[in-house]
Design a protein around this nucleic acid. Sequence first.
DNA 1: AATGAATGAGCTTTCATTCAT
DNA 2: GATGAATGAAAGCTCATTCAT
Lengths: 207, 207, 207, 207
Amino acid sequence: MGIKERKLKHKEDLKQSILDAAKKLFIKEGYEATSIRKIAAEIEFSPTTIYLYYKDKAAISHALHQEGFKLLASQFTILNYIENPFERLKAMGRVYMQFALENNDFYELMFNREEPLVCVEDHWEEGEQAFSLLVMSVRACQQAGYFTQFDAEAFSMFIWSTMHGLCTLKIKGHLEHVTRNKMILQNVPDVFTHTFETFIATLEKLR
Amino acid sequence: MGIKERKLKHKEDLKQSILDAAKKLFIKEGYEATSIRKIAAEIEFSPTTIYLYYKDKAAISHALHQEGFKLLASQFTILNYIENPFERLKAMGRVYMQFALENNDFYELMFNREEPLVCVEDHWEEGEQAFSLLVMSVRACQQAGYFTQFDAEAFSMFIWSTMHGLCTLKIKGHLEHVTRNKMILQNVPDVFTHTFETFIATLEKLR
Amino acid sequence: MGIKERKLKHKEDLKQSILDAAKKLFIKEGYEATSIRKIAAEIEFSPTTIYLYYKDKAAISHALHQEGFKLLASQFTILNYIENPFERLKAMGRVYMQFALENNDFYELMFNREEPLVCVEDHWEEGEQAFSLLVMSVRACQQAGYFTQFDAEAFSMFIWSTMHGLCTLKIKGHLEHVTRNKMILQNVPDVFTHTFETFIATLEKLR
Amino acid sequence: MGIKERKLKHKEDLKQSILDAAKKLFIKEGYEATSIRKIAAEIEFSPTTIYLYYKDKAAISHALHQEGFKLLASQFTILNYIENPFERLKAMGRVYMQFALENNDFYELMFNREEPLVCVEDHWEEGEQAFSLLVMSVRACQQAGYFTQFDAEAFSMFIWSTMHGLCTLKIKGHLEHVTRNKMILQNVPDVFTHTFETFIATLEKLR
DNA sequence: AATGAATGAGCTTTCATTCAT
DNA sequence: GATGAATGAAAGCTCATTCAT
């Protein structure tokens, strides 16, 4: 990026540029490896400049956090086109899994990091929105005859737990750890997906 | 007690002290932020001394790891006294939950840390043993008529995912995050337990 | 002088200060024993500051290296005024010897250190240029009837070996070691020069 | 080595064992990488024990130094069987070269290290003896009509300089540096040997 | 004679951050 | 609005060495 173009940028743009650079580094090299210096180098500004737009590294973490949820939400939009509620629920799970796998550092930041949550606390709106989406889907399923004997919210929590647990185990490599050495599920090509399907099969029985 | 034993005793003690200090720090500040120097300061020895007892930082992690699994295994022994397989499975879940909650530091270290697994890789025996226990319980349930349409191993993986996800969400505070702000499950005193019971109810249907 | 130039000046100064401090330490304590910390202490800056001016330790070595060759090259310029090729060759030897003696620290760094060469590898241009100068002189001598039966390049290598060996032995004190205790060459005031002259006498025979 | 055998060793043996271990490490891994701990590990004794036999690391360096000369001297014994003085001189050069190449860390320690020489000073007998050997060979050559116009000692010094310079340049990689990039001596398979032969050819002319 | 225990000093490098301009 | 200069803190690890036994 040349000097001229850079000058043309507005404040808002630069703030976003920082975030974009951070996101890029974050995805490519992980959380630990993303330093202020590297972000600055990426956007060809000085490290000091970063501090004009973000108070400190935690602030960037925080912003990235929200960015992650934005990304997840955008992936969820595809679900709007699925009429059948149970199919939509299944698709939701698949999107969630794909997101977790493809952006595992984001996933970590969004759900498994300790720090940012402290300063977030009441700003976890994005997470709550996502959860609301799940609850809505579950309710739709109930109207189609599924899970009728359960409370929608508690059932949603159960679903989320399963999905979150599955994704986390996958990301940390535990799925492979268990299967590789214990001669377990040897003929299953993809334990991750297979477990998900087992879960879905379970849900299907609850009609 | 002769000199030799006393020396050995001292050595064992110090080794354990290091572990305790490391655990304390891991909990309080996380893996990355726990440095050999801090551990040394905690036990009031020189950093170099640590290396007399543990090869490197990973070795400490590894030892803590094993200690955690030993603890979990000991908690599991109570299950031997439960005849009814489904009851045993339920109890297993409860013990797991309790362990995760009471030793969330250990739980994190055992399941959610990246580093120590690298050097463990093919020696995650403790984890695998625990998983085997689950598979066995599931098989027993199958003989009692539960989950008969499922593969025991895949079903175990699903169960583990759910339990792991639930515990992780709890530990990270997400359960509270979602319910507090979204006016969800307001009348449920303990969302953690409630979700678990919803899960159990689900399993009960699969007979 | 404007602000910009002054800043630049300062930057150059500091860069040179680092080099000077490094040189001093390299000489006094050797390459291995010269640490970034010590260099920093020498110039009374923080170790971190060093990294603002040089990428790493090797970069400092490299810079010193080049400085040394620049100095040697400047000493060689005097040779341009010597017409007679054999005289020029002799003078070249004397300049080389003088340089090695007067700047034995540099000489060591340039020719006897391991490390900096690693990163230089294919960019030993300065050394190669100096060697080219020697080859050219040898060729000129050949046109004047000297060393006609030899390959100019191989013969240059031989000359360089002799000069380098002589200078190194001198710098390390071996010349004195051998003569002092063995009652050898006792009546020769300066073994260093005397050996050089023996060498020259040898060359003279090869006409 | 088992415990029993170890106990049988006498003090002298152990002292030599330490040296042997040091030598082994030294040759295999170089000077910097040879630490007291590693030596101790090699002989299966504790690091502390080393200090019973050698005051400090420098003392070991010193002993190694002498060890190196002993080794060189042993290689020189082969020369006794060569009658022709000039052939013997040539062979001496070849042995020297081989020694320098095969034990370049020893060579470094013996001739290019700064430290040990300080404490050696008057104990460089081995070096002097080796040099005497050279002088004797040169004298023998003179009786065969070579180098008659030169002082034997000064001429020996010249020879040593050349050989030392050549070996040093080789060890440090400068021979390759110069030839590789400068399109020099491209058709010569081994510049090291080739330069030596050029040197020998030079000497041959001095009859 | 041999050692186990312990240490202080040292290394290179990266980091987030500040301050004066 | 942007930056160059500088820093303190920290990291993991290895070293030579000492001391009491």
